[in-house]
Design a protein around this nucleic acid. Structure first.
Lengths: 101, 101
DNA sequence: ACGATAGGCAAGCAACCGCTTGCCTGACAA
DNA sequence: TTGTCAGGCAAGCGGTTGCTTGCCTATCGT
């Protein structure tokens, strides 16, 4: 199940921070992400930990990668998140019943 | 972290099936949900398992409950899911590039 | 009162997850 | 060619999770 992988990937705070970081600055390498996680998100994750997190995100389809020489750049892909809003129809605003006559 | 609880709750297929079931028919009891999970979703979860799943969903704010006598009714609440669309800005529809002239 | 029904509590267990540790591969620069 | 830098592979560990098992409480019908 693909949708399960997406939710599992989003269940970890470090992985959500990685998505935040990739949204703000696209095309970062592993080392860039590690240092920016530490300096900007207060994370203490090692290189291997972040690498494994990126694997999970890539398998879930939330991160796309491209190789150039010895560098591997990561890009955010939010399209799998749309399945969430499609599944449980999220209207813009739920009107509170009886709160506003 | 509340947002982490929401994603963890959604990471389980049985819990997602419970949300589907509650969306289709609101206000079901624990026993109703168990039987409908078995008959309609092919699940084999026991009563205790479903009860614990409902606890997780309730703690995540995705399910609201109301007690009447010896019955406990469950209702779906999709408002926590809105945090997802707010965090990684999900536009309503991604225009396919060059697909519709 | 008594049984049946709807649900709750808690201990225990196997499987999974996040992370570390150690070593290895491949690309560039000197 | 040798050293350095970016990244990968895999085994192992401690904590968490999903589920079972067993027992208990509360409400309703008769």
């Amino acid at each position: 199940m693909v949708v399960g992988d997406v939710f599992k990937a989003l269940a970890d705070p470090t992985r959500r921070a990685l998505l935040d970081e990739l949204q703000e600055r696209s095309g970062q390498t592993l080392y860039e992400l590690v240092t920016r996680l530490i300096t900007r998100h207060g994370s203490t994750s090692s290189r291997q930990a972040v690498s494994q997190h990126l694997d999970v995100l890539e398998r879930a389809g939330l991160v796309r990668t491209r190789r150039e020489g010895r560098y591997k750049f990561h890009d955010l892909d939010t399209s799998p998140l749309r399945a969430i809003t499609d599944r449980w129809r999220l209207d813009p605003e739920p009107p509170p019943p009886g709160a506003n006559p």
